[in-house]
Design a protein around this nucleic acid. Sequence first.
DNA 1: TAAGCGTGGTA
DNA 2: TTACCAAGCTT
Length: 365
Amino acid sequence: MDTSQTISGRRKDQIAEELPPSLLAWYDRHRRLLPWRSLPGQHPDPYHVWLSEIMLQQTTVATVKGYFDAFLARWPRVEDLAAADLDQVLTAWAGLGYYARARNLHRCAQAVAALGRFPNTEAELLELPGIGPYTAAAIAAIAFDRPATILDGNVERVISRLHRVQTPLPKAKEELRALAAKLTPQHRPGDYAQAVMDLGATICTPTRPKCVLCPWRPACAAFAAGDAETYPRKAAKAVRPVRHGVAFWMINDKGEVALRRRPEKGLLGGMMEIPSTEWRTENWAEAEVRAQLPAAGKWQMLDGQVRHVFTHFELRLGVQRALIRKSPAADLIWVSPDRLSDYALPTVMRKVVDLAMNRKVSDVT
DNA sequence: TAAGCGTGGTA
DNA sequence: TTACCAAGCTT
């Protein structure tokens, strides 16, 4: 090996050794203050850490804050959450999305309450419902200060830039995990885990990273190459298809509106809905909709339609409205319109309510 | 392994 | 407006 390479190699090793301490020093000055974080020197509450981590899965910090506070106020301990009705949990979760998380949250609370303590190893945590590789590592590190390697979207971005990883996600995951594991320190691993995420969230951002402010800039290959913003590389995404449906807003002689509970599994599982036709690729013709009307009455097609974007398709929902004399189907639940907030209505159904009640109106075309 | 699973904010 | 993105998990 030639001499300059050896020197350069040693210099790199030296920089690599300094990465965790330099990040921790940065974190001590710039850490975000978040409702679920303990203050320096205090032990975090595993219940708070777990609850926040579940809520934060694919969900922004700003969105989670209000839900986190509301859950803690209502269910201060994991035993309280375990004792709650699932439907109460779903109602409190409404609007947050990915509703399987709420059902798993409830099951997990019951498992922890039955166990009488919070599991504190990565392997044990991984057994619990709703806890996957990332969340198990995050709880082990943050709540119990174990040297677990977290790999979330932030870490993927930071590490792929640091090493200028060319492999596109999701294929690059194991490569990134191995690189991240080499950095995980024995000293303050919990703070380190939160520090990498703070770095990704505030400095090493997806667009326009603030490299001038980054404590890892001296070691960053992408910064040196001037192409940080192009990482992580990603595989091309599939196009999002459009589906169509018609919702039926039924009002009885008491002024109540008909809801229905969706099946436990699948899309919006266990949540409430305004009954509707199937959501299908083809548009619905008038005659087809007439044949599907769930009850006799004077049906009126409302102007506009609800547009809602799910992860894997876009939904366009027309709304038909009618006064109904008697309940046409046994599985309907009749609810006073001013009590709708007591029910587990996902956001797409709130939009239907808004259109049907002639409110103003997001995502109506 | 890849598809299914929500929503709101931002460029 | 569209497209992307955010502390991923389950099957």
